[in-house]
Simulated scan of single mutants.
Amino acid sequence: MDVDLCDLKEYECGQRMDEMSVKCLLYVDDQVIFAPSACGLQVMVNKMNDSVKKKCMKVNVSNTKAMVFERSKSTTESDINIEAERVERMI
């Protein structure tokens, strides 16, 4: 499923790499979405889901995973949801 890049283009989120902000990586049938926080990721997932719904498609939540990378030893506890279904979190 492709996200309409215009949907994410104006959203100031993603990971900074030098002077470039990477918001997502698109593959043939997969995508990776980057966000600096769980809250930011939820916003981007909502935008992606809205884009998919406009095309009369649905995200397969059982094939969707979330992964959090943090520098501190404690881990942020937050769920990412799509249409009220919790996305599985990878450790």
Rank of each mutant, 00 (worst) to 15 (best):
K54L: 12
F69Q: 10
G14E: 04
R71P: 13
D79Y: 09
M67Y: 09
S78I: 01
M17G: 05
M48T: 11
K58D: 09
E70C: 07
L8F: 11
K65A: 07
D4P: 11
V61N: 02
V68G: 11
E12L: 09
I91H: 15
S21Y: 12
V43Q: 15
K73V: 11
C6H: 14
N63Y: 00
I33M: 08
G14Q: 03
K65G: 04
N60H: 06
K73L: 05
K54N: 14
A66P: 12
M67A: 06
I82E: 07
V43F: 02
M1L: 13
M90D: 03
N49V: 12
M20K: 04
E19Y: 15
P36M: 01
E88G: 13
N49G: 05
S72L: 03
D2N: 07
M67D: 03
R16E: 12
F69M: 05
K58Q: 10
K55R: 04
A38D: 12
N60G: 06
G14V: 13
P36V: 01
A38R: 07
V32M: 10
V22E: 00
K9H: 02
N60I: 01
E12H: 14
E83N: 15
V43A: 03
S74F: 15
V61A: 01
S62T: 06
I33K: 03
T64G: 04
E12Q: 07
K47M: 12
D4H: 00
T64Q: 02
S62Q: 06
E10H: 15
N81T: 14
V28L: 11
S37Q: 07
D79K: 07
C13M: 14
G40L: 06
I82S: 13
E88I: 04
I82C: 02
D29A: 08
C24W: 10
Q42N: 14
R89I: 07
V68F: 13
G40R: 07
M48W: 12
E85N: 05
R16D: 10
K65R: 00
M17A: 09
N60K: 08
V22F: 02
K47G: 08
I82T: 13
G14R: 00
V68T: 00
K73I: 09
K55F: 11
S37T: 10
C13S: 15
C39Q: 12
V68W: 04
L41W: 03
M90G: 02
E88V: 03
V28P: 01
S51Q: 06
S72N: 07
C13T: 14
M1P: 13
V43R: 13
C39V: 03
V28Q: 11
T75I: 02
E12T: 06
L25R: 01
G40H: 04
E10P: 15
K23L: 04
V45M: 08
V68P: 08
S78N: 07
M44Y: 00
